[in-house]
Amino acid sequence: MSFDPRSLERLRELGRQLPRPLPTPVASSTAEPRASKRRHRIETEDDPQALFQELMQVSPDGTVPPHLMARLKAAEAKRQTQESAEGVRQQQGEMNPFDRSSSARKGKTTVAKTPPLTPGSTEESLYVAFGQLLLEDEDEDEI
């Protein structure tokens, strides 16, 4: 394919105006990657009590920056949620009316089958409450 001299010159002008690729930066061999840098225990601690102790050791006058206080509060809230969920699971396990070993179910030949439910869900608590109502109703009928 051939171009007339005028078009060829125009193409050369456009070629001069095109951006050139930037040179690739040379990685410094002395600089460590950020992920491998050692982080302070305040940044990695999840236990609220240990985090509080670290904050008090680092702070000369007992003041804590707001972002670290927010981190401490979040760690405490997370711990409380885990503990309350664990307590609810244990409590529901003790009061489960569909458990075969339950004293309220002794002597019964039928066992209620519950669908698979996630622990702590609304559906599970409704099933437990309904089962308790049935047991209370059975107790009143026997009297």
Rank of each mutant, 00 (worst) to 15 (best):
D4A: 13
R6D: 05
R6G: 03
E9G: 11
L14M: 08
R16E: 04
R16Q: 09
Q17H: 06
L18R: 09
R20Y: 06
V26L: 13
A27T: 10
E32T: 10
P33Y: 07
K37R: 15
H40V: 02
R41D: 02
I42S: 05
E43Q: 15
E43N: 07
T44H: 03
E45F: 00
D47S: 05
F52Y: 03
Q53M: 12
Q53D: 14
E54D: 06
P60V: 09
V64N: 04
P66S: 07
L68C: 10
A70R: 14
K73I: 11
A75C: 13
E76T: 14
A77M: 06
R79G: 00
E86Y: 02
G87V: 05
Q91G: 01
Q91T: 06
G93Y: 06
G93C: 03
E94D: 04
E94T: 10
N96P: 00
R100Y: 11
R100I: 14
R100Q: 12
G107Q: 05
V111S: 12
A112Q: 03
T114W: 03
P115C: 01
P115F: 03
L117E: 09
L117P: 06
T118R: 12
P119T: 10
E123F: 05
Y127H: 10
Y127V: 12
Q132L: 14
E138W: 11
